[in-house]
């Protein structure tokens, strides 16, 4: 059931917003946002609290409708009225708090709402086995898929939610601050899965208020501030200073780079970028201004 997304070379982007805006009554939560998400690309949406990040992804995810501009999926104008509808178009959202039911076993969570049936009952053996295999493919080796998902670490939980979305045919994966509540090590794990989803050809929209997390994995960066677009860059268009201007310090950055490096592959390349960055900005451990 896992989809293999072909590289869309000339086709329309998976998701395109043009001049999109949203107001809640007389509150202008979002204005003039233009955004493209293609397969095999990570778009990072950055901004402080209240910048409009959640509003933006709620439009894409079908929880809210845009009040201005257009929203196209693979070239077709859309106006989703429910998350289900967005899901049917291959747009899956992993919310930070809404991802899972903590007391339920991992495999029950994995298939929740998409249970595989065999007559009137569920095909439990298939679901157990598939959950284990899909998680293994993402590099999570769970001892027991029967353990309540609440007993997993925050990062692992996010990863289960991500691999679930991938398994059920998501073409676009929206992640609302998946690293916000996580420590550096766990954040590194989640960033690794973001890269893995990208390698599988998915378009990823990664929401964060932390540029340390965004820069190593992102291909495009959308900066929001108070509901407006502060900047929209491809990776080669943005200077590091512009993004890292929002950074608090270099120590966390270094740790993060070590985490990524340890995992190898594309993650190690990202770690390299991160390290260079720390070096060039002179914000490494013990450097003046490091805080």
């Amino acid at each position: 059931m896992t989809v293999s997304v072909e590289e869309p070379t000339t086709a329309a982007p998976l998701v395109r917003l043009t001049d999109a805006g949203k107001n809640y009554g007389n509150i202008l939560a979002l204005q003039g946002v233009t955004l493209e998400v293609s397969g095999g690309e990570v778009t990072c949406v950055l901004g402080d609290n209240g910048a409009g990040k959640s509003t933006l992804i709620k439009i894409i995810a079908g929880l809210h409708q845009h009040s201005e501009g257009t929203y196209e999926v693979e070239g077709q104008p859309v106006r989703f009225t429910s998350p289900r509808e967005a899901l049917n178009h291959g747009i899956a959202t992993v919310y930070q708090d809404l991802a899972v039911v903590p007391l339920m076993p991992v495999w029950r969570n994995f298939f929740l709402g998409n249970e595989v049936r065999k007559g009137p009952r569920m095909d439990i053996a298939f679901m157990r086995g598939t959950t284990k295999k899909e998680l293994l493919d993402m590099g999570i080796d769970l001892r027991d898929v029967d353990q309540p998902i609440g007993t997993l670490s925050g990062g692992e939980r996010q990863c289960v939610a991500i691999s679930r979305a991938v398994y059920f045919g998501a073409k676009v994966l929206i992640l609302d601050e998946p690293t916000a509540a996580l420590g550096v090590k766990q954040s590194g794990v989640v960033l690794k899965y973001i890269l893995q989803a990208r390698e599988r050809g998915l378009g990823v929209v990664f929401i964060t208020h932390n540029p340390h997390h965004a820069y190593p994995v992102g291909d495009r960066f959308l900066l929001l501030k108070r509901g407006r677009v502060l900047g929209y860059y491809r990776k080669n268009e943005v200077t590091r200073d512009e993004l890292t201007g929002l950074m608090a310090g270099g120590t966390e950055l270094e740790e993060l780079s070590h985490e990524l490096e340890a995992t190898g592959g594309a993650a190690a390349a990202a770690a390299h970028v991160l390290e260079e960055e720390v070096h060039e900005l002179g914000i490494g451990h013990g450097a003046p201004g490091a805080q």
Binding site: P83, R84, L87, T93, Y95, D97, L98, A99, V100, V101, P102, L103, M104, R108, L112, G113, N114
Partner: peptide, 13 residues
């Protein structure tokens, strides 16, 4: 699921 977390359940359909 609905007893464990109604919002999560709703989100997955």
């Amino acid at each position: 699921a609905v007893g464990g977390s109604a919002p999560s359940s709703r989100a997955v359909g």
